[in-house]
Amino acid sequence: MNLALYHPQKGYYSGGNVGIGSEGDFFTASSLGSDFGELLAEQLAQIWEILGRPNTFTLVEMGAGQGQCAGDIIRHLQTHYLELCEVAEYIIIEQSPALIERQKAHLQQWLEAVINLQWKTWSEIEAESIVGCCFSNELIDAFPVHQVIKKDGELKEIYVAISDEKFTETIDELSTPKLKEYFEQIAIDILSSAYPNEYRTEVNLATLKWFETIANKLKQGYLLTIDYGYPAHRYYNPRRDRGTLQCYYQHRRHNNPYVNIGQQDITAHVDFTALERQGEQYGLNNIGSTQQAIFLMALGLGNRLAELSGGELNIQQTLKRRDALHQLIDPNGLGGFNVLVQSKGLNESQLQQELKGLAFPA
């Protein structure tokens, strides 16, 4: 999965084959218009206020796609929160050189703007230097995962092999004891009688390093994670015996990662219980979680829907805009995504201030 997505020349993301939007392989919230980024900017502006309007306010977007969300956030902040922009630095952490080039092209107009826009690697950011917010949207689902299987009462791992110049799978001992430790951490016993023989699922160990890195760089502020997934008891439901690994190719979903190598997206749902527990392990506090629909409504999406009745747009424009807004809150689609907020270094007064996006009851 790591090679298929991130090989420098042939990987889906690193090689420049990623397609987002109507002409690509999948939609993201940002590809539906500027609303997602603008509403997220409202939350970021409140975070600046909660942190006491620091003289340097750092925003770190991890995995910025084609730069659409970043552009929408920056434009909204410069229009409505110029004071914030004058002290803000907007850092994009991106693994794919091809995507960095797309992002720079899309964000060209902002490179000389009031806000300080930069691309960095984690190694270029000093420890305990970030006062602000690190955030991601549909990033963790593309982290490479291990696949494990319950086989004759034991937990085994599924490996990729090659036979007759074709990919095949083989089952063997676990590659690391961290796989067993993972299930202990989230209190799931796959070896119990509730789980059928050959129950197969995924484990995302890459988030451990991710949390360690963020906790090391973040001095004071928030980590905001938006992605699709479940709490552990739903993710590892005994009836979900084939796991959640899936592929996207030209807006068609299937479950065969051994075709269209480097030409399709490969993802797995996110275990949000693991994100909470792993974050705690590295010193992050769980502030709260909700669904994207509720998060965006709390930040003002409902008002935007209400404004459509004002007659400023023609019927076709109104219908198109209403459809885009409804897709952001569709509980069976983007609206059903989870939003997890964690923090580090907040004092008691700051912890008592509720984030706007979490203000609606879940």
Score class of each variant (00 low, 15 high):
Leu275Ser: 03
Ile190Thr: 04
Ser123Gly: 10
Lys178Val: 05
Leu39Pro: 08
Gln147Val: 05
Arg322Asn: 10
Asn216Ala: 11
Lys150Tyr: 04
Gly335Arg: 06
Ile315Thr: 08
Leu111Val: 14
Gly288Val: 12
Asn260Glu: 13
Thr170Tyr: 09
Thr170His: 11
Asn237Phe: 13
Asn347Pro: 05
Leu275Phe: 03
Gln292Met: 04
Asn314Glu: 05
Ser136Pro: 07
Ile47Asn: 02
Ala362Tyr: 09
Gly221Phe: 01
Arg200Val: 01
Ser96Asp: 04
Gly345His: 01
Leu245Gln: 11
Leu44Glu: 08
Cys85Ile: 02
Ser34Leu: 05
Gln68Val: 12
Ser22Thr: 10
Gly11His: 04
Tyr230Thr: 03
Trp122Ala: 13
Glu173Asp: 11
Glu184Ala: 06
Gln263Gly: 01
Ile261Trp: 12
Ala4His: 14
Leu84Asp: 00
Ala298Lys: 01
Gln291Ala: 05
Gln281Gly: 04
Gln43Glu: 15
Asp164Thr: 10
Arg277Pro: 01
Gln9Gly: 05
Phe167Ser: 05
Ala98Asn: 05
Ile140Thr: 14
Glu38Asn: 06
Phe295Asn: 01
Thr170Phe: 08
Leu355Cys: 03
Phe211Cys: 07
Phe272Trp: 09
Ser309Trp: 12
Ala274Tyr: 14
Gly33Glu: 12
Ile329Asp: 12
Gln43Asn: 15
Thr201Lys: 02
Asn332Pro: 00
Val145Trp: 07
Ala215Gly: 15
Pro144Cys: 07
Arg253Thr: 15
Ile140Met: 13
Arg239Pro: 00
Gln250Tyr: 13
Tyr282Gly: 08
Ile50Gln: 01
Ser175Pro: 06
Leu155Ala: 06
Val148Lys: 09
Gly345Cys: 02
Asp227Pro: 06
Arg239Cys: 03
Val160Thr: 15
Ser349Lys: 10
Ser34Gly: 04
Tyr6Cys: 07
Tyr230Phe: 15
Gly310Val: 10
Arg304Leu: 13
Arg321Pro: 02
